[in-house]
Simulated assay, not measured.
Amino acid sequence: MSDPVGSRDSASISDRDFKVIWNRAGRAGLATAPEYDGDAALHLVLTFHRKVVARGLLGTLDTYEDDLNYPLPWVLQAYRALSLHISATVIEQAFYDHYGLLIAAQYDDSHGISSDKGTARWDRAQARIDATYTLTDAAIARATRALIAQAPEDFAPPR
Rank of each mutant, 00 (worst) to 15 (best):
Q77G: 12
Q77W: 09
A78K: 02
Y79K: 02
Y79G: 06
R80M: 11
R80Q: 14
A81Q: 08
A81M: 11
L82M: 04
S83A: 14
H85A: 13
H85I: 08
I86D: 15
S87H: 03
A88Q: 01
T89D: 15
T89A: 15
V90Y: 07
V90N: 02
I91F: 08
I91Q: 09
Q93R: 10
A94G: 09
A94K: 01
Y96R: 05
Y96K: 07
D97W: 05
H98Q: 10
H98P: 00
H98Y: 15
Y99K: 13
G100I: 04
G100F: 07
L101V: 03
L101H: 02
L101D: 09
L102I: 07
I103W: 12
I103N: 05
I103Y: 12
I103M: 10
A104V: 06
A105W: 07
Q106W: 10
Q106C: 10
Y107I: 14
D108C: 09
D108H: 12
D108N: 14
D109V: 08
G112R: 03
I113T: 10
I113K: 10
I113G: 01
I113Q: 07
S114G: 02
S114A: 11
S115M: 11
D116Q: 10
K117A: 14
K117F: 15
K117W: 14
G118Y: 03
G118D: 13
T119Y: 11
T119A: 15
T119L: 15
T119W: 08
A120R: 09
R121W: 09
W122E: 13
W122T: 07
D123S: 12
D123R: 11
D123K: 07
R124K: 13
A125Q: 03
A127E: 14
A127I: 08
A127C: 05
R128Q: 13
R128T: 14
R128Y: 10
I129E: 07
I129Y: 01
I129A: 04
D130V: 04
A131T: 02
T132Y: 00
T132L: 10
Y133H: 01
L135I: 03
T136I: 04
D137R: 04
D137A: 13
D137E: 15
A138T: 08
A139Q: 06
A139H: 01
A139L: 06
I140D: 03
I140A: 06
R142K: 12
R142I: 06
R142P: 00
A143R: 01
A146Q: 04
A146Y: 01
A146S: 03
L147R: 05
I148W: 00
I148H: 00
I148V: 01
I148D: 00
I148R: 00
A149L: 05
Q150C: 07
P152Q: 05
